[in-house]
């Protein structure tokens, strides 16, 4: 746990943290290092790490990983291959991408894709896979109920408990 106290969340520090996060969102495909990000922010490596963690509740590396996994989920849901997805989100090794994805989501990229794809019967509705269910139902866009019946059988998670 990184100590978050004694960090002043002044306007200039908040701006530095926001700029670093913008950099992560713009450059998640390339190699981003803690030293490089700290240099961009004009801060020492250690202060930058503490500041970013204080604002975002995650280290820059954890945050970057989260962004990469999120982009990967969308690419897989849209039908990209695991290899394409791995390269798109900035990994060069398929093995390390797959194991990181599995650690974060609990499923391999292939299994995650199978599950996501059977909720998306029409390609243009890929986005709807990421809209909370209540809004889809409320606005009459509840295609996932029918899609699940039409697609491969999904495990019944209604009574599943955390192991």
């Amino acid at each position: 746990m990184i100590a978050a106290q004694h960090i002043s969340l002044s306007r200039s520090n908040l701006r530095r943290a926001v700029r670093a996060r913008d950099l992560i969102h713009a450059s998640y495909q390339s190699t981003l290092t803690l030293d490089g990000m700290a240099r961009e922010a004009g801060l020492s490596r250690y202060f930058f790490l503490r500041l970013f963690s204080a604002v975002y509740g995650a280290t820059p590396h954890d945050y970057l990983t989260g962004v990469r996994v999120d982009v990967a989920k969308r690419a897989l849901a849209a039908g990209a291959s695991v290899t394409e997805t791995c390269l798109e989100v900035g990994f060069s090794s398929l093995g390390s991408f797959s194991s990181l994805f599995a650690r974060r989501t609990g499923l391999s990229p292939r299994d995650w894709q199978r599950r996501a794809r059977c909720t998306i019967p029409v390609p243009r509705l890929v986005q709807s896979a990421f809209v909370p269910a209540c809004f889809l139902l409320f606005h009459g866009l509840g295609n996932f109920g029918e899609a699940q019946r039409a697609g491969p059988a999904l495990p019944d998670v209604s009574t599943r408990r955390r192991q």
Binding site: L14, D22, Y56, Q127, F130, V131, L141
Partner: peptide
């Protein structure tokens, strides 16, 4: 998010310091 699904537009925003 800014996605259109037929007539429905899923539009969400948030402050940059609170991504979740």
């Amino acid at each position: 998010d800014d996605a259109r699904m037929g007539d429905f537009r899923w539009l969400t925003v948030g402050p940059k310091t609170q991504p979740d």
